[in-house]
Every structure is written in C-alpha cells, then in structure tokens.
Simulated assay, not measured.
Amino acid sequence: MPECPYCTESCQDEQRLRSHLYHEHPREELGRIDERRVKHSYETFIQDDITTLEEYLEKEPTRQTTVEAVETFERVLRKTLEWEDIETVHNRIVAAETLLLDTLDTAVQTLGREFLLDIIETYDPRAERTPPPGVGATIGNIVGRDIIRTRLDEGVEAIPAAELAYLETLAKYEHPVESAADRRFKDNRWAVSYAYGWGIGHPTHDVAGDIHTMARDASTADWSEQTLIQAFYADPGAATDILEGLLADNQMHQRRFFLHSLKEVTRGIGIHTPQWDWNAEIEREFELEDDLVKRLRTVVADSEFSNEVSEDWPYTPI
C-alpha cells in the first residue's frame, strides 16, 4: 500500500497516491519523481474535478450544494494555475463558471442576502494566490448584481457596506499579469467591479472618493471612467459632483478623457457585469434631465476645456 512521503496518508494503489499528491499537496512541495507522477495523470484529475463541479451545478441550489460548488470551482482554478494548464481546460471552466453564476444568483435570491455576506467573508480576494485566477471575480459578479438590484429596489442606504468593500478590493487589489489567461481574469475582476459606481452616495462608504482617487493613476483611470458611468445611472447629480471635482483636479493627467464618457451615458443604461441578462430586470431607458445637462455644460464652461465641447455636448463627443 503506497504511502505519501509528505504526510501520514496511506493510499490503496498508485493512482490514488497520485490523486492524493495532486489534491492535497502544492506542486512546489513535490519532489521531481512525485511531480512526474502527478503530471502523468494530471488531465484526468482536472477533468474529474470539473465533472464533479458540473454535477453539483445540476442539483437544486441549496446552501450546502452551492457552497460545495464554489469550493470545487476554487480548487479547479487553483490547481489549473498551479500546474500551468489553464488553456487546456479553459472552455470547460468558462462553461462551468456560467452555470455557477446562475446557481449562486438563484441561491442568493432564495436564501437571502445573509448567504451572500457569508460567502463574501469566506472568500477574501486579497487572500487568493497571485497571479490569478481566483473565485473573487465570480463572487464579485453576484455582489455587483445585488448592489444594483438593492439600489433600484430599496435605495442606496440598504446596500451592505461589505458588498461595496468587496468590489473595492477587486478593483484595487494588485497582482502581476504574466500571460493571456492572467489578463482575462484581471479584466474580469474590473468588469464586475464597475457596479461599485451604483453605491454612489452610500452613507458609510466613500464611493465618490475612490473613483476620484483611482482616476489620478493612469493605470486605473479606465476603471474610474467606467465606474463613473455606472454612478451616473444611479445618481446623475452626485456623479456630476465627481466629474466637477475631476475637471478641477490639476493632479490628474487624463481629465479630458472623462468628458468622453458622458456620451455613453446618453445612450441609455449599459451594465457590464459579465454573463448577466440584466435587460430582463432593468429598464434600459435613461435620460439626463435638462437641468442636469445645463449644469454639466456649466461645469465644463468653467473648466479649461470650455473651448473643446460643442453645443450639443454631452450628446456628441468632444
């Protein structure tokens, strides 16, 4: 009966020893011979894990099955990163994540927001291995949906501060980008965290301050622009306050960039949370009121960009 050289586990046969080494020990802990052992059966192990995940996702969502599905998905991501084979199973992972998002969304709406807050507390994105992937963006996707729904149904005061803090962490958490796979997961983190803008005006969480601060950094200015657009959908007046502050901030190097963003606002609501059919829940129609358009034009007129906007701005680009 083979024994694990790294712990006290005894395995029934060679294949179970390989499975134990793969699932219970990080790759960096394994010696060369054991690493070759695992590599020999790696694809079988990861495909089996994904199959297990898919089986969880076929069940009626309950607290237990949903938690088990998230745990399995996290293990799949961690192990594919660890063994540097994310491309081999990428399509199955994306398909499984789509099902997991549906399961999580259903579970949160069925079990209540406390279930989502428990998940948030369990999976802190700052604790994930770097570079990505991790489950933070998957959970953040559901968090963003809940923030938007809560804002529309109950008002900004009802949004849990913990949910805003989670998206803030996703947006600010730094990690290296070393491959195309890393870039996809980083972009996904940002896309789900744009919903942070719907928390504008929250009584205990300074969304406006974060949008302004991150706009000063060229590496995060794109995030601020997209998040500001979402803030306009939630509260155009408060978002205009942010824009006014940005245009007056001489420490910013891309102030003109934010004038372009208003064109997207005038096209109607557009939510970037991946894999969410939000059109089935949220009315796309959105219109800036005349008084607010006048105020926006006054804000620009009082800035150094007054000669760069047309009379039809923000309905036409600068």
Rank of each mutant, 00 (worst) to 15 (best):
L57Q: 06
D277L: 06
P5I: 06
R284S: 15
D217F: 13
E84H: 12
N250W: 15
T227S: 14
E24R: 09
I50H: 01
T72I: 14
A96T: 09
A161I: 09
T103N: 10
D249F: 14
R32M: 11
R255I: 06
R184N: 04
Q275Y: 10
N250C: 14
S193N: 02
R92G: 01
C7G: 06
H25A: 02
L167S: 06
V300C: 01
Q251A: 15
G199Q: 01
I139R: 02
A215C: 08
R32Q: 11
T72W: 11
T98Y: 12
D210H: 15
H212T: 10
D182E: 06
R63S: 15
D206G: 12
I139G: 04
A191Y: 09
T204A: 12
E281R: 09
L111R: 06
R267F: 10
A239F: 08
D49A: 13
T240F: 10
A158P: 03
A301C: 04
E157Y: 11
R216W: 02
A248V: 07
S10I: 09
D241F: 02
V309G: 03
L21A: 00
E82H: 03
S19K: 13
K59F: 09
T62M: 11
K186H: 11
H272T: 12
K263I: 05
D182A: 02
V192E: 03
A191G: 00
C11K: 00
C4V: 00
T298W: 15
T316I: 13
G134L: 03
E308C: 02
T122C: 10
S179P: 09
S261A: 11
N91R: 14
T8Y: 03
E281L: 09
V192D: 00
E163Q: 11
F286D: 00
V156A: 01
G144L: 06
K39H: 13
P160F: 04
E178Y: 04
A238M: 13
N307W: 15
R126C: 15
D48Q: 11
D49W: 13
R183S: 09
I50S: 07
F45P: 06
R27A: 05
P176A: 01
T130P: 10
T88Q: 10
V67Q: 14
V192A: 01
Q226Y: 11
